[in-house]
Design a binder for these strands. Structure first.
Length: 226
DNA sequence: CCGTGTGAAAGCTGAGTGTC
DNA sequence: GACACTCAGCTTTCACACGG
């Protein structure tokens, strides 16, 4: 929670969708401060949203503050490179016998991808599948066993065992952190968090990840595979 | 053993300020 | 106006104590 206004008013916080929208704008501006008109438009738009209309008026100054803080945070973060856990470096599989397929980077399409990975993998963050739905991926780093968002798939190769691998660029990391990863085991479609209001969209057969709050209030979501 | 309540510490994030 | 902090309050996390 941010610092509340000194006038004693209720504390203010941007909604997740507002944050993501401003994030996108910030990226479009190459991390530069958007024009004043853009800030005003955003403030007006946020003020007119269903969640805020009639309750909270978002000031242009507040939007401006957000951009200022975000830009500073990003810069501060990038000044000291992101540290992936590297306590016990796993042996990298670079030495594994492989045969590199001469595939152009822009059209990397692993021939035998698991069901978790859509048929078309292109080296950009957002990928449109055949159904024109927006796909994002995450990959499990061999170095620390953690899942990270995938920024792009740079290349593809096949081990002698026939297992397909892709060269992954992790989101927020640079070339030095790229890893060759087994598509079947270490790449999956990114899990998307759901709002409570989106529960009605869950259908029988959908794969979901849930947790049990406690013994009494058990989440009773059934997943029956078709 | 398990559930619950409490408090401290850390983290997050909006706002304020000084400098250029 | 942009930058580089700093401030301040809320949220989250964790440890611990207590009672059933």
């Amino acid at each position: 929670m941010g610092r509340p206004p000194s006038n004693g008013g209720p504390s203010f916080r941007f909604m997740p969708n507002e944050v993501s929208e401003m994030d996108i704008i910030l990226q479009e501006h190459q991390n530069a401060m958007p024009a004043r008109e853009v800030l005003i438009a955003l403030a007006e738009k946020f003020s007119e949203s269903l969640d805020r209309k009639g309750k909270i008026v978002v000031q242009m100054k507040q939007v401006w503050n957000w951009f200022q803080n975000r830009r500073y945070a990003i810069r501060a973060k990038s000044s000291k490179p992101p540290v992936k856990l590297d306590v016990t470096p796993m042996p990298r599989d670079d030495s594994a016998p492989v045969r590199i397929l001469p595939q152009p980077v822009a059209t990397v399409v692993p021939a035998s991808v698991p069901a978790s990975v859509p048929p078309s993998i292109v080296p950009s963050m957002g990928r449109m599948t055949a159904e024109n739905s927006y796909m994002e991926f995450e990959a499990k780093s061999a170095r620390d066993g953690a899942w990270y968002d995938v920024a792009s798939f740079l290349s593809e190769r096949y081990l002698d065992t026939g297992d397909p691998e892709v060269l992954v660029r992790f989101a927020g990391f640079g070339q030095e952190e790229d890893e060759w990863l087994n598509i079947h085991k270490h790449v999956r479609q990114r899990s998307l968090p759901c709002e409570a209001s989106e529960c009605v969209a869950v259908l029988p057969g959908d794969l979901i990840l849930c947790f049990q709050v406690n013994r009494r209030t058990t989440t009773t979501i059934t997943t029956t595979k078709p």
